Amino acid sequence: METIQQLKLYAKKVVQAGLVVGAGGNLSIREGDIMYISPSGFDLQEIEDHQWVRVEISTGKILGDLKPSSEVLMHLACFRKRPDIRAILHAHPTYSVAVSSTGNMIPPLFPDFPAMVHNVSYLDYVIPTTEILANAVADVISDSDVVVMRNHGVLTVGKTMKEAYFYMQLTEESAKVYVIACTMGKPRILTEQECQELRALSSERYRQTLLRNEVQ
């Protein structure tokens, strides 16, 4: 099944890229009114085909015996708010967590980040796995493809899992560049005009189209 293969592919990518450790992180893909989501307590790269949990998006009903990720409410909230998205990824990328825990935002320091990631929302710390967090994410997800949760992690959404994963990579790389730059001096942050000029480039719009249309 294509959906399962996509989930397995990006589950391994997330672990191999160091975006999660242990049994951390979760991801899901929508198929109609059904969400396929990683099971609770599993190392993402060790999930077998039959272990991805099916959940009805409209009702929250779990279809099967395994327990879904403890962040299932957050995934449901995003799918209910954003009928345009098909994939959700939640990870705990080191540099993004580090920068956000200081109260700072992750600034645009190189072209790819502002060109591809147009809106980032920041949430102050909310206890994970709760309805409180799910509601907080739901309040901002309509206008954002990236949500940075201070002292916790990052959530990205996309029309494909490839798009959601790319947003996660760019956010973490931007946080990493920022941390490194700060150790050497005061970073020059791209201006809003420079960011808008990047977003207007036809090459960047083409890349966005590829991310949203490709299968993997």
Rank of each mutant, 00 (worst) to 15 (best):
163 E>R: 09
46 E>R: 11
113 F>D: 05
112 D>V: 01
148 V>K: 00
62 I>R: 06
88 I>E: 10
168 M>W: 10
158 G>Y: 04
16 Q>R: 15
108 P>F: 02
55 V>K: 14
29 I>M: 04
35 M>D: 02
144 S>W: 01
17 A>M: 06
131 E>M: 09
85 I>V: 11
173 E>W: 09
66 L>N: 05
99 V>N: 02
159 K>F: 03
183 T>S: 08
166 F>W: 05
144 S>I: 10
189 I>W: 13
163 E>D: 07
17 A>N: 13
177 V>H: 01
113 F>M: 11
131 E>Y: 11
139 D>F: 00
60 G>D: 14
178 Y>I: 12
16 Q>G: 02
100 S>M: 11
71 E>F: 14
97 V>M: 01
32 G>I: 01
64 G>L: 03
38 S>D: 05
77 A>H: 07
134 A>G: 09
141 I>M: 15
74 M>A: 15
191 T>A: 00
177 V>R: 07
33 D>E: 10
92 H>F: 04
140 V>G: 05
194 E>K: 06
26 N>Q: 08
31 E>T: 14
42 F>T: 09
48 E>Q: 09
60 G>C: 06
122 Y>M: 11
82 R>C: 11
45 Q>I: 06
189 I>P: 09
194 E>W: 08
24 G>D: 15
157 V>N: 09
35 M>E: 01
101 S>H: 05
152 H>A: 05
30 R>Y: 05
41 G>D: 07
19 L>D: 02
103 G>D: 03
6 Q>F: 00
134 A>Y: 14
190 L>M: 14
146 V>D: 03
140 V>R: 15
122 Y>S: 08
50 H>T: 15
210 L>S: 02
12 K>P: 12
178 Y>E: 06
128 P>I: 13
50 H>S: 09
216 Q>R: 12
178 Y>M: 13
121 S>I: 04
110 F>H: 11
21 V>S: 11
150 R>A: 08
141 I>S: 05
104 N>I: 06
150 R>D: 00
79 F>N: 04
172 E>K: 03
124 D>I: 06
60 G>P: 04
210 L>W: 10
158 G>A: 01
95 Y>E: 14
2 E>F: 15
172 E>N: 10
76 L>F: 07
157 V>A: 10
173 E>L: 09
160 T>V: 05
73 L>W: 02
201 L>V: 06
132 I>T: 14
202 S>M: 12
